[in-house]
Amino acid sequence: MKHPDRATRLPEYGSKGPLSEEGGEAKKAQFLATLSHQLRTPLSVIKLYVEALQDGMYDNTDEAFARLDAKCREIEQLMDELLKEAKTK
């Protein structure tokens, strides 16, 4: 995992979050597109590692499981940020 924080950052919107009525439709659409991308990226990696493990492509499964765990943590961090954002609104 090269940049653990970069992959899990949601855009900052200040005191009026993107999902508030004052946030505007364009900000809401941008926020949801970013969220979708940020979730799909680690999920795609997880899917590829699972398929590779199922196909027996790894001699060292410990490395593959470590990477899967790291991607799961990225998703957890993103969800924590999302919940934090929702609670401040």
Rank of each mutant, 00 (worst) to 15 (best):
H3F: 02
H3D: 01
P4I: 05
P4D: 02
P4N: 02
P4S: 00
P4H: 02
D5W: 01
D5S: 04
D5G: 00
R9L: 00
L10S: 01
P11R: 11
Y13H: 08
G14L: 08
S15D: 06
K16S: 11
K16P: 06
G17C: 03
G17M: 08
P18T: 02
L19I: 14
L19S: 15
S20T: 09
E22C: 13
G24W: 07
E25W: 09
A26M: 02
A26E: 06
K27V: 11
A29C: 13
A29V: 12
Q30G: 01
F31P: 01
A33C: 04
L35F: 11
L35M: 05
L35N: 01
L35P: 00
S36M: 10
S36Y: 03
Q38T: 04
Q38L: 09
L39E: 02
P42N: 05
P42D: 06
L43C: 13
L43E: 06
S44T: 13
I46W: 03
I46V: 14
K47Q: 13
V50S: 12
E51S: 13
A52S: 13
L53C: 12
Q54W: 05
D55E: 14
G56C: 09
G56K: 11
G56A: 03
M57Q: 15
Y58T: 01
Y58M: 00
D59V: 12
D59G: 09
N60Q: 01
N60E: 03
E63S: 07
A64S: 02
A64R: 00
R67F: 03
L68V: 08
D69S: 12
A70S: 13
K71I: 06
C72E: 07
C72L: 09
I75R: 07
E76C: 05
E76Q: 06
E76G: 04
L78T: 06
D80P: 02
E81I: 00
E81C: 03
L83M: 10
E85Y: 11
A86H: 09
K87C: 12
T88K: 08
T88L: 01
T88V: 04
K89Y: 05
K89A: 13
